[in-house]
Design a protein around this nucleic acid. Structure first.
Length: 572
RNA sequence: CGGGGUAUAGCGCAGUCUGGUAGCGCAUCUGCUUUGGGAGCAGAGGGUCGUUGGUUCGAAUCCAGCUGCCCCGACCA
């Protein structure tokens, strides 16, 4: 390919309104252009990268025995009503109607469609297990699209769905997908982690997310320093540490007219933050005696909403009481709440339950209790794991302590079980001729997001540094001094033809520009290898070789290029 | 959904406070020169100033509505 014929509008200046580096570089490199909030057009260079990601994923899915299909992006409402998700999905589901006023949605995922297909076409256990996948455009009307293609509304996803006669078979299929994901991410060259995840509203028994580690990630990943334990912070268990010290202080009521926050309390009363607790009021699950539940966590901890939501006493989705509700239930406003005299059921975080001689609101505006102790001033608490892990906590597997890093979720695998097959009547006959409900798994990879994630991980001041597996071209050729010496053009064209004949993808920068802007553009778009040909190098039958991340270029014989390039491209 | 910002040439911006009919850099086009890290000279093209309405002799500028886009928040006791 010749740059003189390629649409790649590079930008010299930083575009406005970009906050993450991948978004900025994708715009500058002419890979994408924004069409509307969360919607992008992929230009030739960007599309080449996207296709490479797709192809790696496709090869690994095929290798794992999955079969590619293609389902419609527009889906009839009836299927979603059958699974119950027409009601439960929020405004994220873009609904529309056709000319006959029939309801449809733009598919954010395809469980319903694939389950419908399989219940019609698969009738016997002999046809299982079966894994179907597609690489397709999805639409989710995100609350706030941002970060370019990292959180866009329209995006390309590889989604696979497996069907099994038993839970055991599902576990096998799930493990097979796990391994295929690892192979794909290894080949792409990402620094990633498979982490335990919350299986969320989808339910099911097992779920893992694959995260690319990057500071710009939107999720917190909890790791052990000593073991292989890794989990999404939503899921990471917190193991209480230490034992509760015996009471040492007398209970006392202290006037705190201006201390409405833990910070203020700690600052003004020289109370260690680990001897404070905060009290949060949330809506109780339907059908309980009380309308609200108090949650108590240590002052320096934060509530884990996913854990809280899973508690049988607590309403899902988690809903905080409004200020007026807090006031009417507790008799005091936020900032003065506490466990002593609390009129509603309390759930206390494990670690908060180990506090002694602690301070908390008195349920009376402007007053706190200090020197509180469980079992003395308060009943022994009902406890649960309610908080987010923090760095330095004991690792949940008991080995080492935890660190927390940011991650970009690029894959998610689920054991769905029978949620959809049950709701939609997807059954087969087993060996005994009995109807059995199929067990299902689903497995997603964010193709477009991987492109951004790879850039987040591999770039420098000059631009993108593509891994060889994703680069839009394997190599670029920059001829210099072609106007003076026609031989430069002849020789670089010949080299391009030779490399292309061997299957390499080659970009030749034949634009009538000085070397500066061409070098800068080739660096920006991140081609792994740059070959420079000039009258000087040709005289010695040489070419200048520079890897994208090499500090210096070096001269090598023209005849050595093929061998060296083969090494680089195959080394991925 | 709440709060904030912003909208002027392809891109990045100034001009708005103090109303008088639009400018800078890059990019683009033409010609000549120029080829080892974002070239030089000379010339040229390109904007109903997001949109609707209002105030005014006169609006990019003042006022109101609408829309787009961006940011922050939606863990607070």
């Amino acid at each position: 390919m010749r740059t003189s014929e390629l649409l790649f509008p590079t930008l010299r200046e930083d575009p406005a309104d970009t906050v993450v580096i991948s978004h900025k570089l994708m715009l500058r490199a002419g890979m994408i252009r924004q069409l509307a909030s969360g919607l992008y057009t992929w230009l030739p260079l960007g599309l080449r990268v996207l296709r490479r990601v797709e192809n790696i994923v496709r090869e690994e899915m095929d290798r794992a025995g999955a079969q590619e299909i293609l389902m419609s992006g527009v889906q009839p409402a009836e299927l979603w009503q059958e699974s119950g998700r027409w009601q439960h999905f929020g405004p994220e589901l873009l609904r529309l109607s056709d000319r006959h006023q029939r309801d449809f949605c733009l598919g954010p995922t395809h469980e319903e469609v694939v389950t419908d297909l399989v219940r019609r076409e698969v009738n016997s256990y002999k046809q299982l297990p079966l894994n179907l996948y597609q690489i397709q455009t999805k639409f989710r009307d995100e609350v706030r699209p941002r970060f370019g293609v990292m959180r866009s509304r329209e995006f390309i996803m590889k989604d696979a769905y497996s069907f099994h006669t038993s839970a055991e078979s599902l576990v096998e299929g799930y493990q097979r997908m796990h391994d295929a994901y690892c192979r794909a991410f290894d080949r792409i060259g990402l620094d990633y982690r498979a982490v335990l995840a919350d299986s969320g509203a989808i339910g099911g028994t097992g779920s893992q997310e694959f995260h690319v580690l990057a500071d710009s990630g939107e999720d917190d990943i909890v790791f052990s320093t000593e073991s292989h334990y890794a989990a999404n912070i939503e899921k990471a268990q917190c193991i209480p540490e230490g034992t509760r010290a015996a009471p040492n202080e007398d209970l006392r009521r202290v006037e705190t007219p201006t201390q409405k926050t833990i910070d203020a309390l700690v600052r003004d009363f020289e109370l260690p933050v680990t001897r404070t607790v905060k009290t949060l009021i949330v809506k109780a699950a339907d059908g309980l005696e009380h309308a609200f539940i108090a949650l108590i966590i240590r002052g320096d901890h934060t509530l884990n909403e996913v854990k809280a939501e899973h508690h049988p006493w607590i309403h899902a989705p988690l809903t905080f009481a409004s200020e007026s509700e807090v006031r009417s239930v507790m008799g005091a406003g936020p900032g003065s709440l506490g466990p002593l005299g609390c009129p509603i059921p309390m759930i206390v975080d494990h670690q908060a339950a180990l506090c002694s001689d602690f301070g908390a609101g008195a349920n009376d505006d402007g007053w706190h209790w200090f020197g509180l102790n469980w079992g003395r001033d308060l009943p022994e608490p009902v406890t649960d794991d309610l908080r987010n892990a923090v760095e330095g906590d004991l690792s949940p597997d008991g080995i080492g302590r935890v660190m927390i890093r940011r991650g970009i979720e690029v894959g998610h695998i689920f054991q769905l079980g029978t949620k959809y097959s049950e709701a939609m009547g997807a059954q087969v006959l087993d060996e005994q001729g009995r109807n059995v409900v199929m067990h299902m798994g689903c497995y997603g990879i964010g193709i477009t997001r991987i492109v951004a994630a790879a850039i987040e991980q591999q770039h420098d001041q000059r631009g993108i540094c593509w891994p060889a597996s994703l680069a839009p071209f394997d190599v670029c050729i920059v001829p210099i001094g072609a106007n003076k010496s026609p031989e430069v053009t002849t020789a670089s064209d010949a080299l391009m033809a030779r490399l292309e004949a061997l299957g390499f993808s080659v970009l030749i920068d034949d634009r009538n520009l000085g070397p500066g802007p061409r070098f800068a553009d080739m660096d920006l778009i991140g081609i792994p290898v740059r070959l420079v040909m000039s009258p000087k190098t040709l005289e010695a039958d040489q070419v200048e070789w520079k890897g994208r991340t090499d500090a210096e270029a070096e001269l090598i014989p023209v005849d050595a290029v093929v061998a060296r390039l083969t090494q680089v491209v195959r080394a991925q």
